[in-house]
Design a protein around this nucleic acid. Structure first.
Lengths: 336, 336
DNA sequence: TTGACAAATGATAGCGCTAACATTACTACT
DNA sequence: AGTAGTAATGTTAGCGCTATCATTTGTCAA
């Protein structure tokens, strides 16, 4: 690779005996080049191992094949599942991904957005609908399609794929109440906007049933872990020992609650009902299996990219708002 | 953004009253520009909201700020922890990340490598040391620094940050034997090269103690999940019901084994010892807590990027081979 | 056969930046 | 004051590709 000269368009052109622009056309819009020439060009490309220079193309055409993706965390299970869907969605397309980690900061998000826009991204995927004012303005006037993912509770800028976190929280809470639990609690970590909507749903629904007590709410801004779930459950029992059910922020928290309950010999589901969120794969096989709300994370990523690519191609989807739904999975941890 | 003309270097230059190249220098190597001019330039950049065009820079300098990262999976916990380290490592550096998902295929890996090399990546991070012959050749003659991560068992191409999976497997197996287990089993999914090295260590170590029985090995090429752990454990008990300990491929499998054992009322650690691998956060708080081998995944990513950036800067680290070690965490699941 | 028109190909310029060399401004010393 | 030497800035050209417009070739009807 050291004394290796880069193979360029004109190398291919010379080899075939045509001009560089014809090679460019053969690669970009093959239908504009005669079949004979086209095939000779493809053969030469293969032969020489020509790989187009993305930077040169971007500069010349002032377009890129880069889709910018803004997510708040690279480690969180939720987003890695969404990412997997996104990666699957761009497979066998000419698009590349550029990931931006906002770390749950609207300011980082705004800054990354500026970078992506200045680099003429072909499209953008952003998480949630709670951007800063400036960021929303940037998105609204972005020269490329934008998909917001994760939630449908707010008004989207362009397209959106998600589900209603409020409705999901409501469904979970109603389930706990329907199972006969009288004193439900909420445990939440990393109270991001979506978690907050779920909490609001919990509070509203419990209130309506006369079962809401602010003492039965344990939250923290720290990122959620199984350990933290156990600790918050401990805190909760200290202030509200009569708690008989917990709606957890997510499944990590729920697992922590389960382990801590087992440690304290609190019987699940008799003395304690547990409901998680996201339905991680292990929830179904835990002992006992844990009730959770399944969120179609992989599909969300896939759909988002599919819509984006369609829109980049010039045919924006008829329905720019996709509610991908959720599903309450009733399991033994809530007496099912 | 629609009828918005891109702000370029010469816009800034005109504003300040210098030539474009001076602005370029002020941004690239500030020490070559007088303080007075430099500050005026910075002010103008801020003022106009100038953002350099990465494509133009790449084309002109035939260098990029893109570090290519090749990992076999975007969802696996192990790699998402490594990724987190990598992301942390490039924070506040001028570098961007481009992720390539090889999906455990050496062919995909080779292809992605070609793309990254043709796009003049500033540096490369690749997973493992088991590339295809062609890929190894590409890496060996790559015009940029390369860091291999995850394992130190093989000869690296350039730099490497990892640990010995063989030694880790040995330590785990010796621990099971030392705890008095006589009939240890191995359960593994997604038998990638690193898992295979751990298995080889298990087999060698058990053999040496006269405790190896091929009937007590359950593996599958499918990706590991908690559910799969439970199933493989069931299979294992069907063929080797006298198994008294399990060394698991990873913690997901170990959790599955634990839940399945609980379901079958097999007491842990009395009738069954369980040892996992990776030490996911929840292992310490599971009930019972599960013995595992802690692997410094975050640190591995961080160190890898730090070394790479040093090398890109022209000062390759003195020791290009970093064994970052591992740690056996003895917990109740093996009677500790 | 010729003209009209479409299809196929080519020539030219320029995207925004930096490498390489050229020039000018400044400093220090004889 | 003059000169060498360095620091600061400028000029020119070109990275590899594509947009735009120009030209050539091919096709078909009259």
């Amino acid at each position: 690779m050291s004394d290796y000269r880069k193979i360029t368009l004109s190398d291919v052109a010379t080899r075939v005996g045509v001009s560089a622009i014809t090679v460019s056309r053969a690669l970009r819009s093959p239908e504009k080049v005669s079949v004979v020439v086209r095939e000779k060009i493809f053969a030469a490309v293969e032969d020489l191992g020509y790989v187009p220079d993305a930077a040169a193309r971007a500069l010349a055409s002032s377009r890129t094949n880069v889709i910018g993706v803004l997510i708040p965390s690279v480690t969180n299970n939720v987003f890695s599942d969404v990412l997997k869907g996104i990666y699957t969605g761009i497979e066998n397309t000419p698009f590349d991904l550029q990931l931006g980690n906002t770390r749950y900061s609207v300011l980082s998000e705004e800054q990354l957005l500026r970078v992506f826009l200045s680099q003429r991204s072909a499209g953008l995927v952003v998480t949630g609908t709670d951007q800063s004012g400036a960021a929303r303005a940037l998105l609204a006037s972005a020269p490329c399609p934008v998909v917001q993912i994760m939630e449908t509770d707010n008004e989207p800028v362009d397209m959106v794929v998600g589900f209603s976190h409020y409705q999901a929280g409501q469904a979970a809470t109603e389930h706990l109440l329907a199972q006969g639990y009288k004193k439900p609690a909420f445990i939440g970590a990393r109270m991001d906007p979506r978690t907050q909507r779920r909490f609001r749903a919990f509070a509203d629904t419990a209130k309506k049933a006369g079962a809401f007590d602010p003492a039965r709410v344990a939250t923290t801004p720290a990122p959620s872990t199984v350990t933290l779930g156990g600790q918050l459950f401990g805190d909760l029992l200290a202030t509200a020992p009569d708690t008989d059910a917990v709606f957890c922020n997510n499944d990590d928290i729920a697992l922590g609650v389960m382990f801590e309950a087992q440690r304290r010999r609190i019987s699940i589901p008799e003395s304690l009902g547990i409901c998680g969120f996201n339905d991680l794969e292990m929830m179904a096989v835990a002992e006992p299996p844990i009730t959770s709300v399944r969120t179609p994370r992989f599909e969300m990523g896939q759909r988002a990219i599919a819509m984006l690519i369609e829109a980049i191609g010039g045919t924006p989807p008829a329905r720019p708002l996709v509610d991908i739904g959720f599903q309450l999975l009733r399991r033994r941890s809530t007496g099912c």
